[in-house]
Amino acid sequence: MGILSNYIVPTLFTVLLHILVVFTVLIGWQLSDTHRFRVDTPRYVKAELVTLEQKQKQPKAEPAAPVPVAQSAPQPDSEPSEEEAAAPPETESSADAAVSASPDPAIERQRQLEREQEQQLQREQELRRQREEEYQRHLKQQRASEKRAQEQARQRQQQQALQRAMQEEETLMQAEQDEVLADSYAALVKRTVESHWSRPPSARKDMQVELAIRLVPTGEVVGVEVTRSSGNTSFDRSAVLAVKKAGRFPELKDMPSSVFEQYFRSFTLVFKPEDLLL
């Protein structure tokens, strides 16, 4: 009895307690879990959708290729003129044949002549047919080559559009990267300046002063101006003094010049005493 109560009761108690705790954690976690992730997932999907839209837009721009179709239309018009130009030589040659046949007097000869003429006519007709066929073939070939050219042009255009899209995307990404880089440098500058900042006792929590800092690529400060005053001159002056004390930001030297020109040539810094209680 003593041993039983000594060992079994504590064991049962311990096991039950742990099972209870595990179940509580599981249920509580699942409840909070569904709650949190229902909020989170759409945000993630949204971000992906934006990139997808960008990619889709550019392929849409490609169908602007119909221009070559319009170009192809005038070309068939020029072909008939070629046909006209080709026809006259045939009539000339038939006239020559008639001249050579005329000196013979007899009927037989006439008949022969007629026959010859007929034959010649037939020959001519055949020739004509052949030429026409040739011409048709030629035309077909031309059309095929034109078509091929058109397709090539379209492909080229598609490729160009794709390249353009890719370039745009790259520049976009580059811009994004630049922005991130600029942000990190801006945070650095802000930290440096704030470490030199000694706030006047009159500083209050809701005060805010905006400074325009002009920088050169070596990171030196060449000018500070108050663009939006907080209304408290000593507070403004302390901010300006902080920037002047900081003097230069040698880290900016490592920055790519394009980023510098875009973001840091003239740089806006907002001073807010966030850690004050009043």
Partner: peptide, 17 residues
């Protein structure tokens, strides 16, 4: 840690009794 928790609760119960 789980084993430690089980063991410590077991000892707590035994000591309590």
């Amino acid at each position: 840690l789980f084993l430690a928790s089980v063991a410590s609760w077991w000892i707590i119960a035994r000591r309590f009794l």
